[in-house]
Structures are given as structure tokens and as C-alpha cells.
Design a protein around this nucleic acid. Structure first.
Lengths: 359, 359
DNA sequence: CATCAGATATGAAACCTTTCAATCGTCAAT
DNA sequence: ATTGACGATTGAAAGGTTTCATATCTGATG
């Protein structure tokens, strides 16, 4: 056990203290830390012993101040409790780890003010770069960061213009896939559940849904809009109650939810209220989170390459910070529909049923 | 639009630049930033205009260097993709927000090396304090931080000794509740699913389970142990396959899973392989995450006050950093069993069934 | 008109690390 | 013995912010 106990009040030892203890100059201590090969083994040993004895811990603030930049990436998540975003974060961590960088996770929780507060903080921290799934991709604060020299990559959104890189999945296509699937199954009264309107994902997925209706020769306005306050399980439950409460002739036969959380909440509430899924109501979610497959009725969902999304975003960011001739890119991944029992029929049921609803 | 564009290469403006632009000393700029009431309105206005014009952003590293401490709390999560921990994080954020602090979320992903790397980084960052749900609460690195003056609060674990504060839920009691519930329903062949052994939650919950058996006059060793590699949905699926594969006479009739992720995976796999839940297999999870209620068969689970856990932990940490006469506390919350269909019977089934299995 | 109080503004020092040009010491070659 | 070369070490400067003791100014009071 080294003698590194520090009674309250004494401040942390600095390179200066280490230098004094080892009887060398502070430049030498720094060399031990940063270019050990330039220091003779004898001296190095002595310095290392002094560091251990004093319990020396490098002061990252001072390093950063000197270096001008930190070794930290930040990801501002739209919703920390949505597994979709933690999966994206994992992808970012994969890349960061390989480059010996750390990742600072922030949760805007879909609140614009929180997002702005975090962006401001991160800019002050002089982080290496910011990855963000913004509440609103047109948030002027993003342009501000870029203008002042902090690199920003937008995740899960595309932005008009080429002010920064972005990585996204084609949400319009995703919405189209979801609704085409419902149309293929014969549904004609289809609802879209999600909100609020500011969230781009919501807009795009809905617009894809409308496009699918139009391609099928139906008026886009026939899409029943069920607005929610947010994209949470709780919001989904609320929407479920509203839909279950509709009279049989008005109630949609198929719903497309803006994400899986909403779909799961809606599913749970509908089942609890006696609406059979998918016989009376077919449900399509979005994101294909792990829980989607484990739901009351395994959930049909639109799958996105979540982890890959994070990886690509981090790579773009690092390229931007590293190579001088970087060109902004807008990478768009393709989503994929995963059909399961919530639209198809009851998997595992002893009496299989045809899911065809009344057209 | 202010003229704050900065061509690549030019470094960010500092207080010095602002001072020059406004024609005042740099001390005055600092006063505008920190004690605006001491600056005459005219000067203040001039300085603020200069800051806006130059696109001045405070350098947090330099502030910290001067102040010695940062305004950031960190929470090192055991598993970023487990909603339990994001809920705890939310509780922490609640408290931090109120005090104008920020929260740095880190994900050890149950890897001890990652945990140590983050702890080291955070100590170097001189964060205000560290909240952590450790892979192993006896990790000596924790004692190291405390010894060198960084405050640490352990979340969701208790630690022997009183080296730091901790907030936990009584996992032994939770395990006992879960298994008592199964015993009450008549189950006698009961399995515990979870792992790895190093994780304290796993040990405690299992030990509570064994205690329940003993209290019921059964040998503790009659608890069938199904070890998993981790506490994930995927691990649960694997365990589900193993259990479903057992012959009818050897297969347990009730299982208690170390957390909900494992329980959901297990549930899904068992249902897929044709094992009826709860008729042939009753399942109890742990954590009562939102998804538990929305599962294939709504999941009986042991509920913990997750958000409250985070709040209390953050409060303890802040008390520790603020009040000089702080005394370390070990706060223990009580868990609560929430019975649902996975042990009781099929809720919402048209033909209700008695869940009583063969004893 | 001189003095003083109070309100404002200033400039230097400190925080800790890193870097780099300069110095020191040693050994080999001349 | 002198020089040169080279490896090891040094010391000062820089980086941006905050603080605090000091200086300056304004206006009022005697």
C-alpha cells in the first residue's frame, strides 16, 4: 500500500510536487508521462515511484487547456430511455474505444432547452466533436457550433444544405414500407400514431405513410392521425385507449406507430381493453428494438441498422476532425421491414387464424 | 447575424480578445461574466456586444483549472442498454438539473476494464463526484478515488465498511419475495437464471431465493441454477432454450430471473419453443422495467424505485461535496413484488385458466 | 476648492501541463 | 587533451480564466 492518503483540505499533487519528490525538474516528469523513451531508466523509475507514492493524478483540464482540444466525443441522445439510442451510442463507443477516446453521453429527453444547454456546455468543454440526434435538425444552435469550429455530425436525421455530415436511415422509405405492408394485407383504414410534430422522424415517417397511400391510389388524407405528446410507452398507452374507444366502424384496422415504444404501449393497452391484435387491429412499429420481438404479440417493425449508424457517424466525425480535405457527407441507410405476428397472425397460437381484415 | 464566422485555423477568441475589442481590461470581461452587477451598465453592454461579435465561448478547461473542480457529475452505468439504468440516470439528472450541474453518462457494459478506464478518466477530469453501479463493489479502484479525494457514491449496491455512501434496494429481500411468490403458487421445482457470479445483484438475488426455500423447509440446494453469461435479452433466450429442452419431469415449473431482460428473452424463447407460460412454466423477473408489463405474457417482476434511487444517490453525493460534517450513509430501499400473468394465469384470455401447477 | 467615499476598472498572479530551445554531462574519436 | 556528437535533463513560456489588491474616476461633502 503506497502512502497516497490525502487528508481533506490538501490539494492534489501536481507534476511540480512529483518533480520535487523525485529530485528532478518538472519537465522531466512530463517527459516520463509523454515520452518515456527519452528518459533514462533510472530517472524514470524514480519518477514513477514518486508518482505512485504521492498518488499523482494527471489534471485533464490543464492538459486540455494546453492542447486546445479534449479527447472526448459527446453524443446528445434524443431519448435516453429508448433502447434505439443506446444501441446507436454503443456503435459510437465502438469507434471511440478503438481510437482511445471517451464518449460523453447526454440526454436531451426531447426537450429543446436541455439540448441547447448541453450543446453550450459541450462547446465550452471544447470536446473533439458532437454527435447529436436533435429535437429539431434546423436548430440554429447547431450551425452556431459549426461556425465557431466545433465539429457536429447529425445522427438519424438528414439536414438540408451541407453544413455538416449526417447519418440517417431513410425514414420516408421506412414509413412507406410500413404502410405498404398494411395495404398488402388488405387494410384500408390506416392510422399513424406519433408526435409531436417538431420531431423530424415523425414528419418523415408520416410522409412516407401518406406516399404509400397515394401510390396505392388512395387519398393521402385518408391516413387517420393520432397525435401523441411524445414517443414513449406511456404515450402509446394513451393512443391505444383512444383507438380502442373508437366505434368499430370508425376504428382503423391497421396502425403504424412512429416508433416501437409507442407501438408497445399501444399494443398493451389495446390488448388490455379487449381489442384483438392483429385480428381487429394490425400494428407496425419502428426501430425493431430487442423488445419488439418479445412483446405481447411479437411486433412487426421497421428495422434500422442502429449500431452501424453510430459507428458510421463517429467515423465521419473523426474524419472531419482529422483530415484537412474532409468533405461533408450525407449517408443514408436503408430500413427493412420485419414482419411478425402483430400484422400477420398469432404465431404460436394453437388455432391459427387468417389475418385478413375487412377491406 | 453577428460577424462571428471563424475561418479554419483561427483559434477561438479568449477573454483577452474580447477585452481588446471592447477596449477594457480582461479583468472587466471576467467581471461581466461572473459578477455583472459590479460593472457599469454602459461597459457591460459594450463587453457583451464584443462577445457576441466575436462569437466568444468560455473555455471550461481554463475555468476548471482555476477553480480546481468541475461542474460535472458522472454516472458509470453497468449496462447502458438496460432501461433500469437509464431510469436511475434520469433520477440523477433530476437532481443535477436543479443545481445547474451536468451529468456525464458512461457505460461500463459490465466490463471491469472499461469501468476502470472510465474511473481513471473521470478522476483526471476532476469531476465533482462519481456515481457508479460497479461490476464488483469491492473494486479497489473505488477506494483509490475516495482516498485521493474524489467523492464516490455506489448505486444499487451496498458495500461493506463505510468508505462511501451507497444507495441500494434490498436484493436479498427481492429474491426472497420472488421465490416466496412462486412457492405460494405451489411450485417446488424452481430455477434461478442469471450470471455471471461476480455481479453482486446476481449473488444477492440468488441468496434471497435460497433463503426463501429454506424458510419453506426445502433444501437451499434444490434451487436449480441456470448460469448465463450476462444479464441480457440474448442471454435469456439462451437460458430459455436450455430450459425448454429439459425433459418434462426434470424441467422446473417456476423460474426466477436475475433481471427483466433475461426474463423477457427467456419468455420469448420458451413461448417460441412451445412451452406454455405460466401453465408449464411460471416466470418472475426483476426491476419491473416498462417493457415487463408489455411482454408476450405480462411479466411478474420485483419492482425497484429506480428514479428515486438515482435521486437519493445524487443527493448524497452533493451533500458529501458540500457539507463538511458529512457522514456516510447506506440507504436501502425496499423492493415490491408486482404479480402479473406470467405467474398468475393468462390475463385477457377468453378462457381463464387456473395457474396451479403440479406441486 | 480640497478631500473623501464609493463605485468602477485594472493588471498581475495563480492554476497545471506541455513543449522546445538550451544546457549539461559523457564518451568516442582525433 | 581537445573537440564533437549525442543522449539526458532543464527552465521558461504559453494556454484562458478567475481573483484580489490596487488604482482611477465620479460626485458629493465640508
Amino acid at each position: 500500500m503506497t502512502n497516497s492518503d490525502r487528508p481533506t483540505g490538501a490539494s492534489a499533487p501536481s507534476v511540480k510536487d512529483v518533480a520535487a519528490a523525485a529530485g528532478v525538474s518538472l519537465g522531466t516528469v512530463s517527459n516520463v508521462l509523454n515520452r518515456p523513451e527519452r528518459v533514462s531508466p533510472r530517472t524514470r523509475e524514480r519518477v514513477e515511484r514518486a508518482m505512485a507514492g504521492l498518488g499523482f493524478v494527471r489534471n485533464e483540464s490543464a492538459r486540455q487547456l494546453r492542447a486546445g482540444r479534449s479527447r472526448v466525443l459527446a453524443y446528445v441522445m434524443l431519448d435516453g430511455s429508448n433502447p434505439f439510442f443506446s444501441d446507436v451510442a454503443r456503435g459510437i463507443e465502438d469507434v471511440a474505444e478503438r481510437r482511445e477516446l471517451s464518449v460523453f453521453l447526454c440526454n436531451s429527453d426531447q426537450v429543446a432547452e436541455r439540448e441547447d444547454a448541453y450543446l453550450s456546455l459541450l462547446e465550452q468543454q471544447r470536446v473533439l466533436g458532437v454527435l447529436i440526434t436533435p429535437v429539431d435538425p434546423e436548430n440554429p444552435a447547431l450551425a452556431g457550433l459549426t461556425r465557431r469550429g466545433t465539429h457536429v455530425v447529425v445522427v438519424d436525421r438528414t439536414r438540408s444544405g451541407d453544413t455538416h455530415c449526417s447519418v440517417a436511415v431513410d425514414d420516408v422509405l421506412g414509413g412507406r414500407l410500413a404502410v405498404e405492408h398494411l395495404l398488402d394485407l388488405g387494410h384500408r383504414r390506416i392510422a399513424f400514431v406519433g408526435g409531436p410534430e417538431q420531431i423530424g422522424q415523425v414528419r418523415d415517417r408520416r410522409s412516407g405513410a401518406r406516399a404509400a397511400l397515394e401510390s396505392a391510389g388512395l387519398p393521402a388524407d385518408s391516413l387517420v392521425d393520432v397525435a401523441t405528446e411524445g414517443l414513449t410507452v406511456e404515450a402509446g398507452r394513451g393512443a391505444g385507449a383512444r383507438i380502442a374507444g373508437m366505434s368499430g366502424r370508425r376504428r382503423p384496422t391497421g396502425v403504424f406507430c412512429a416508433n416501437d415504444l409507442v407501438a408497445l404501449g399501444l399494443l398493451q393497452q389495446c390488448v388490455a381493453l379487449g381489442v384483438r391484435v392483429p385480428e381487429e387491429l394490425a400494428i407496425v412499429g419502428y426501430d425493431d428494438i430487442d423488445f419488439a420481438a418479445a412483446a405481447a404479440v411479437p411486433l412487426t417493425s421497421v428495422r434500422q441498422p442502429r449500431r452501424e449508424l453510430g459507428r458510421k457517424a463517429a467515423e465521419l466525425l473523426l474524419d472531419e476532425t482529422t483530415s484537412p480535405d474532409h468533405v461533408h457527407q450525407q449517408v443514408v441507410f436503408q430500413p427493412e421491414l420485419v414482419a411478425r405476428a402483430s400484422t400477420r397472425g398469432m404465431a404460436g397460437r394453437t388455432t391459427p387464424q387468417r389475418p385478413e381484415p375487412v377491406p
